[in-house]
Design a protein around this nucleic acid. Structure first.
Length: 639
RNA sequence: GCCGGGGUAGCUCAGCUGGCAGAGCGAUUCCUUCGUAAGGAAUAGGUCGAGGGUUCAAAUCCCUCUUCCGGCUCCA
């Protein structure tokens, strides 16, 4: 039989060959270095058998996947150390992740103070350099070994397919595991435990709570140090920290959880964002509407939100009648559409609202601006004929990419399909999902499919952004909805003079302003592009003698619509500059006697570039252009 | 909602094996009028998240609540 190698060539090997055999077939050096392999892209143990036609890739300590293998082994080292210190601990699963590994355990009560001792034990296991050896046992033997561990027995029963299972041994420790692993514990150069939390057995909240310990491992100590420094740097970019430093927003305890307050500088940024969205909406034929924050629950019974999300809504009793704060804007917009009759010639109808919504999310979920109880969606709802669906979705995706590219963000695209809890028939869902998929394919966008992740009323395309710590959050979205128009009885008159049902498209360019703000703060580390910066320019007079000229310069900039202030505190110039950098200003303007006499300014940007003897009008012209073109970085001095 | 860790001056934090509530920054006042990343001095500033308990005595120990953080689960 033959397997296909990464370079596309075919290699003939005897039937029953393993990955390691394939490697030896390629060359004895490679065979000896083989740690694991990939069959059709899936990471496998090096003893795994290959089949005819498989795409086979050899993993050595030079491969990208090696780190994953090493971290899996590090998880075993953790388990070994834990078992030594806590013999009653029951191991469950301990996989590698993108950043490191975790191990879920039961039967122990750990807190963060216990990690240091476990880490010490792990170090000594690395030093001991135990060989990591694979062994094969019968399922009966394995079950006997795990007589006291119901979790491992459950894994044996449900997940181990064959009559035999594999174990990996290192020193006195062994663990049921499919591998692959590194040669010996000494191959793991550096290991650390990061934090401790809870998880549920098999990820089901009805199951027992397990203790999850997160850690990471590297080949070299220097790599670990680099990683820890990176993490520390990422923490510095945390939007909650920067939000405080730049006076953007606060979420005080007294106002209730997840209810952010925007301070003037924060609101300034939000206004710029909504202005940008206004322009895009106007250019794309949207009409702005406005709806109240509270409605009769009757409305959400009609839309289906009440049935699905009643427990997460803020409900009010008003004169013995139930009202609720709006968790979504779409029922309001559908109702507006329903207030008059429409011809097929009127469609598509595109409504838009910066609509504040309220959702009583689970308390443990709230986090800065990324998960909140009150947030504003730049919410658009399109009422379209079936033949208009594709063009409208394409247009929305173009608008989203205009935002993403203007700001230089990285975005992940995902198609989310029908969830378990959903309304509407099979054909409707099928058709909706197919159309979204076709648009994505036609535009040759890279995207993942997330089965079951759609909204209850329809499938959607989600656009995700990473925060400073690499967590992905949903931002922009396009959702196709055949169900809401049905529930609201929406119609238009067709060319045939018959009544037809329009299709609804829900869309948001930012998602929620709150979350998008979080993404921007962390992406730019608070160093907003000029057009977004709360304070765009600060004038620093060298001494009080030039305060008057400083104000004249300020007025000249303010007249051009620049957000500008004069630093008039009794400080040295050095101190003022220091503060200006701490405040993340795009530009500072220093004015002293020389500038006052010449009618010029001295400009300093956030990159510490400076240029003196600058003509004021030329500077203003540049700022206006930089603002209007939404350039990402201050470039007056660079240009 | 679940597990773990936190909440002390406007901000960042120390104090928490019980014994007079602290520092730096910021603010205010005074001195200084300064040329590209922190000039000097003085002063003010606190219901130690809230409530209850133990104690001669609680920021400190115990309980309840609240809120934040890290994960888990959830996310229209």
């Amino acid at each position: 039989m033959a397997v296909v190698l990464p370079d596309g060539s075919e290699l003939t090997v005897p039937a029953g060959s393993t990955i390691e055999d394939v490697a030896y077939e390629i060359g004895p050096g490679l065979g000896a270095d083989t740690v694991a392999g990939k069959i059709d892209g899936e990471l496998m143990e090096r003893h795994a058998e290959v089949s005819d036609g498989d795409r086979v890739e050899i993993v050595t300590d030079q491969s990208d996947e090696y780190l994953r293998v090493l971290r899996h082994s590090a998880a075993h080292v953790f388990a070994q150390a834990l078992t030594r210190l806590y013999p009653d601990a029951k191991l469950t699963i301990g996989p590698p992740t993108d950043e490191g590994f975790y191990y879920d355990v039961a039967g122990v009560d750990l807190d963060e103070n216990d990690l240091a001792a476990i880490e010490d034990e792990m170090e000594s296991i690395l030093d001991a350099d135990y060989d990591i050896e694979r062994s094969v046992r019968s399922r009966e033997d394995a079950a006997r070994i795990y007589a006291d561990n119901e979790y491992k027995r459950e894994i044996l029963e449900e997940e181990a397919a064959g009559e035999t299972v594999t174990f990996y041994e290192q020193g006195e420790f062994e663990d049921l595991c499919q591998g692959p692993h590194v040669e010996s514990t000494g191959a793991i150069g550096a290991v650390t435990l990061l934090n401790i939390s809870a998880s549920y057995w098999r990820g089901d909240e009805d199951n027992e709570t397990l203790t999850r310990v997160y850690g990471t491992a590297f080949e070299r100590e220097s790599d670990l140090e680099e990683y820890l420094e990176m993490r520390a740097a990422a923490e510095e970019r945390d939007h909650r920290k920067i939000g405080q430093e730049m006076n953007l927003f606060s979420i005080p305890t007294v106002t209730g959880p997840g209810l952010p307050l925007y301070h003037p500088p924060g609101k300034t940024v939000l206004n710029e964002l909504s202005g940008f969205a206004d322009r895009l909406n106007r250019e794309n034929g949207y009409e702005e509407v406005e709806t109240p924050h509270v409605f009769r629950t009757e409305l959400w019974k009609r839309s289906g939100h009440y049935e699905n999300y009643k427990d997460d809504m803020f409900l009010l009793d008003v004169n013995d009648e139930e009202y609720g704060l709006k968790p979504m804007n779409c029922p309001g917009h559908a109702t507006i559409f329903d207030q008059q009759s429409w011809s097929y010639r009127d469609l598509p109808k595109r409504y838009f609202e910066n609509g504040k919504v309220y959702r009583k999310e689970q308390r443990g979920e709230l986090s800065g601006l990324s998960r909140v109880w009150s947030f504003t969606i730049d919410d658009g709802h399109l009422f379209v004929r079936p033949d208009q669906i594709r063009a409208e979705i394409e247009s929305v995706i173009e608008m989203i990419f205009e935002v993403v590219e203007t700001l230089g963000l990285d975005v992940e695209v995902a198609l989310a399909t029908r969830p378990e809890k959903s309304v509407g028939g099979d054909e409707i869902w099928e058709s909706a999902e197919t159309q979204l998929r076709e648009v994505l394919d036609a535009g040759s966008y890279d995207y993942d499919v997330e089965p079951g992740d759609g909204a209850f009323y329809g499938p959607k395309i989600d656009f995700g952004f990473e925060d400073a710590l690499g967590r992905v959050w949903d931002g922009p979205t396009v959702q196709l909805d055949f169900n809401m128009p049905d529930r609201f009885g929406l119609t238009y008159t067709g060319e045939d003079n018959e009544e037809h049902q329009p299709v609804m498209i829900h869309r948001a360019l930012y998602g929620s302003y709150e979350r998008f703000f979080m993404v921007l703060i962390e992406h730019f580390d608070g160093n907003f592009p000029f057009w977004l910066a709360p304070e765009q320019v600060r004038i620093l007079p060298v001494s009080d003698d030039t305060l008057g000229y400083a104000h004249r310069v300020k007025n000249a900039l303010a007249e051009a619509g620049i957000r500008v202030d004069v630093e008039d505190r009794d400080w040295t110039v050095g101190r003022k500059i220091r503060q200006g950098h701490d405040d993340r200003l795009p530009y500072m303007v220093i004015v002293g006697e020389d500038e006052a006499d010449a009618g010029t300014v001295s400009v300093r940007d956030r990159f510490e570039n400076q240029r003196g003897d600058v003509d004021l009008d030329a500077f203003v012209d540049h700022l206006v252009a930089e603002r209007d073109q939404k350039r990402v970085e201050p470039d007056f001095i660079a240009e």
